[in-house]
Structure formats: structure tokens, C-alpha cells
Amino acid sequence: MLTSLFLAAVEAHGAVTGASEPGLIEKFGVEWRFVLFQGISFLILFGVLYKFFIKPTTATMEDRQQKIESGLKYAEEMKAQLATAQQESLTLIKNAQVESNKIIEEARKTAKDFADKIQKEAAERATDQMAKAQQAIELEHKKMLAESRSEIARLVVTTTERVLAKKLTEADRASYNETAAKELTNV
């Protein structure tokens, strides 16, 4: 419809201009109708191509471009986050190392204190047991000496009594009795 109108307008223009002398363009054989027709065809083709191919392709490319930019941006952010995370992890590792060294040092100190304490207690216990054993030995020795002395004294006394019972005469006893009487009366 639109094309028919366009062709009619071109023919009318040609009728108006045909009355005059052919111009340079007519001399080269350029037909305005065909040119116009070609232009319109080109515009229609361009419109179709633009609507169904160029525009979707451009949209797709823009979309991809946005995605690529977004991806790059995301990658940059990730890189920054990774750097931050690495920094944080390094800090954490450093702190953990310091803390672990501190704990290890405290553990070593505690173990050393405990070992010293155990060693000291063992030494004290050994000394105490040695002293007790020494005391027990001394007591046993003294007891043995006392028992020996007592036994020897008992044997000496018993032997002396037996000897005196046999050897003392009545005169000796009478004399001793007189001496005893004097001693007892002077009490």
C-alpha cells in the first residue's frame, strides 16, 4: 500500500519534471523511481535485519559484555577479597603461632615445675625414709645393746648370787648383818 503510494508520487513528480529538459542525472540514465525503490527496499531490508538480527545480536553482545564486565568486576573483587583473606589468614596464622608458642612455653614451664616438684618430693621422701630407717637402726641397736647389757647383768648377778650363796660363811653373814643394822638404824 505504502509502496504504491510511493510509486505514484514518483511518477507524478516525473510528469511534472518531464516537461523540462533532461538533466545531468537523466543523461547518465539514473531513474529516480528505481533509486527510490532501491532505497525503500534497502530501508525495509535494513529494518527487518535490524529488528530480527542486529538488535538481538547487539543486545546479546551487550549482555555478554555486561556479563564479562561483571565477571571481571567480580574477579577483581574476589582477588581483593582473596588478598584480604590471605592477609587475614597470615595474621591469624601469626597470632596462632604466637599463641601456640606461648602455650608450649607455659606447658614446658608447667612440666618443668611439676617435674621439679615431683623430684623435690621424692628427694624429701627418700631423705625422710633414710632418716627413719637410720632412727630405726639406731633404736634397734640401742635396744639390742640394752638387752645384751641386761642379759649380761642378769647372768653376772645370778652367778654372783650362786657364788656368794656357796662362799659366804655364817660369820660373814653375821658381820654383814651388823653393818646392815647400823645402816638401817641411821636412816
Binding site: L168, E170, D172, R173, A174, Y176, N177, E178, A181
Partner: peptide, 9 residues
């Protein structure tokens, strides 16, 4: 006593 004891004692 053991042995003789006189009256004086």
C-alpha cells in the same frame, strides 16, 4: 634376814 641376827640388833 639371811644368817644370824642377834637380839641386840
Amino acid at each position: 634376814h639371811a644368817g644370824v641376827v642377834s637380839d641386840s640388833i
